[in-house]
Every structure is written in structure tokens, then in C-alpha cells.
């Protein structure tokens, strides 16, 4: 539509130029005048008539083209709306101003950080390249568990959810692409697993009723205020290291979760060695890594 419009506009301008040329031609010949002799008078009138005919043709061309153009008002540029007073209250000015202010602030902050991070690198670039080239010579299959696509992580978690029915899992992504798993174990405890790909980076266990205003991020870092969950966090961190298989990340995640779900009986299962629940203010907070049986921290040796 718009292209047609411009084409016909260009055509119209061309026709107008032609018309102006032919009109100018007529007046030129009139102004110049010509020596009229008896025999060429008729020829001169004929030439004049011809040039008038060209003007007439050009004029009808212009008329034809201009009729195909749309009326003036609809092709006027947006600038004419400037004269109409906008109701400032109806435009989302405040939000836009604040948004752009915040955005530009953020950009300048981030640029500052980036500059300070990159400055040392600019100097040491050559040496790092060199050392990495050297490292390549030592051939070793590096673990791949950390480099897993987010979709693959989600698929893996979905599989594990079926295998470990006691734990309800929720995936969150508080810090970009890597997932943080929110685990809820019955009515006993909550745990956060920070994953890098499929490798467990950190585990933090907290009480079911311990809440933070910030849903996912803070819980990962703030320790539980209860001794028992701090102990369980220690046990779980030890277990993460025990169940680490560098080349089969899904397996290590599964074995860890399988072991971890035994904490469902954290408060209700007696110690396998001393046969009691209570010792030094705590229930049995250790689960054997092979048999998954409950022990007090001091009873397990």
C-alpha cells in the first residue's frame, strides 16, 4: 500500500516536472520570437501548436496521476499531531521515566563492574592463553556434569521425581540458567539444592516453618536456626561428596536423593546403636550411607 503510494507520488512528481518543462518551452519560444517570413509562417504556427499540444498532454497526464493519489489529510506526517495538546495524565510518563532512569543507572553500574573486572585481564591475556595451551597437552576427560542444557536438567528432575516419591521438588532459577531445587520432605523439613548443571554445589536444610521474605535466593545461604537442621545440613554435605560420580551426574543426584529421603523419619526413628531417640538434645541426625539406617552423630563410629 505504502509502496504503491510512493510510486505514484514519484510518477506524479515526474509528470509535474515534464509539464513544467513543456510550459517553459512554450514561453521560451514565445519570448524568443522568431523571424516570420511568408513561406514559413504556417510552419511556425504549426510548431507553436505542437508545443501547446505537448503541454495539454502533459497536463492531462498530471491530472490522471493526481486523481490516483489519496487525499492530502491521510498522508500528512505525524508532526501535524503536535498541535493537538496531549493529556499528560493519560500517558504512562512516570513509569517510563522511572524505568529508563533505573535502566541507565543499572547500565552505568554494570559497566563499572565490567571495567574493573576486565582491566586485570587486559594485561594478563597473553599469559593465560599460554598456560591454557599448555594444559591442553595433558589429555584428560573432564567431567561433563556441569555442562547440561536446562531442558535436559528439567527432564532429569522429572524422571527423579517419579523415582523418589517422598520428596516433592520444585525447580527455580533465581540466578540465571542454573537451577535451584526446592525440596520438601513430608512434614519434616525443607532443603535447597544448588545445581550447576546436574552437579550438586550446595545443600542447605531448614525447618518446614522457617520462612524468608525472599522466596528462593536467601534460603540457600541462611543457616537454619535449629541445631538439628544444621546437623542434617552437615550430614547432607558430607553425603554429596560421598555420592559424587564425575561421569554420571544423574546417578549421583539420584543416589543422594534416595539417601536423603530417609530423613522422613528424622524425629521418629530411634538410633540403631543405642536404641534411643534422644541424645544430647538431638534426635539421630546421621543416616548410614550404605544401609541408610539412623544413628546419632556420636554412635555411628
Amino acid at each position: 500500500m505504502a509502496e504503491n503510494q510512493t510510486e505514484s507520488l514519484i510518477q506524479a512528481i515526474r509528470c509535474t516536472q515534464k509539464l513544467r518543462a513543456s510550459v517553459a518551452n512554450v514561453f521560451q519560444s514565445l519570448a524568443d520570437g522568431c523571424p516570420v517570413e511568408k513561406d514559413n509562417a504556417v510552419a511556425a504556427i504549426g510548431a507553436f501548436q505542437e508545443s501547446l499540444l505537448v503541454v495539454y498532454n502533459d497536463f492531462s497526464d498530471v491530472e490522471k496521476v493526481s486523481s490516483s493519489l489519496q487525499p492530502l489529510s491521510s498522508v500528512t506526517p505525524n508532526s501535524i499531531y503536535l498541535s493537538i495538546d496531549p493529556a499528560i495524565d493519560k500517558l504512562p510518563v512516570y513509569q517510563q521515566i522511572i524505568q529508563s532512569y533505573k535502566w541507565s543507572n543499572k547500565v552505568s553500574d554494570l559497566a563499572g563492574y565490567a571495567a574493573s573486572v576486565m582491566e586485570p585481564h587486559a594485561k594478563s591475556k597473553r599469559t593465560t592463553q599460554y598456560s591454557s595451551a599448555q594444559a591442553k597437552k595433558v589429555k584428560r576427560i573432564s567431567p561433563t556434569g556441569h555442562a547440561v542444557a536446562p531442558t535436559a536438567v528439567e527432564a532429569c528432575i522429572a524422571r527423579l521425581t517419579q523415582k523418589v516419591p517422598d520428596i516433592s521438588m520444585k525447580i527455580t532459577h533465581p540466578l540465571g540458567s542454573h537451577a535451584v531445587l526446592q525440596l520438601t520432605l513430608g512434614r519434616i523439613l525443607k532443603a535447597q539444592l544448588a545445581l550447576r548443571g546436574l552437579i550438586i554445589e550446595r545443600v542447605n536444610v531448614r525447618g518446614l516453618t522457617e520462612t524468608n521474605l525472599d522466596e528462593s535466593q536467601m534460603e540457600l545461604w541462611s543457616r537454619s536456626k535449629y541445631d538439628v537442621f544444621q546437623k542434617v545440613t552437615e550430614s547432607a554435605t558430607a553425603a554429596v561428596l560421598h555420592f559424587y560420580f564425575p561421569h554420571n551426574a544423574e546417578m549421583s543426584l539420584y543416589t543422594f536423593l534416595h539417601w536423603f529421603q530417609k530423613f522422613r523419619t528424622l524425629f521418629s526413628a530411634p538410633c540403631q546403636k543405642c536404641g534411643k531417640h534422644y541424645l544430647n538434645g538431638l534426635p539421630p541426625t546421621w543416616r548410614d550411607l550404605r544401609s541408610t539406617e539412623p544413628y546419632h552423630d556420636v554412635c555411628r563410629q
Binding site: 512434614r187 525447618g207 528424622l266 521418629s268 531417640h277
Partner: peptide, 15 residues
Amino acid sequence: PCSVPTECWNLMREL
């Protein structure tokens, strides 16, 4: 740490 009586009753009773 525990909000459900059945879970921790035995533990509490021992203390």
C-alpha cells in the same frame, strides 16, 4: 523444629 506431635512425641518423651 517439629510441628507435628506424632513425629516427635517419642523424642520428647525420652527427654
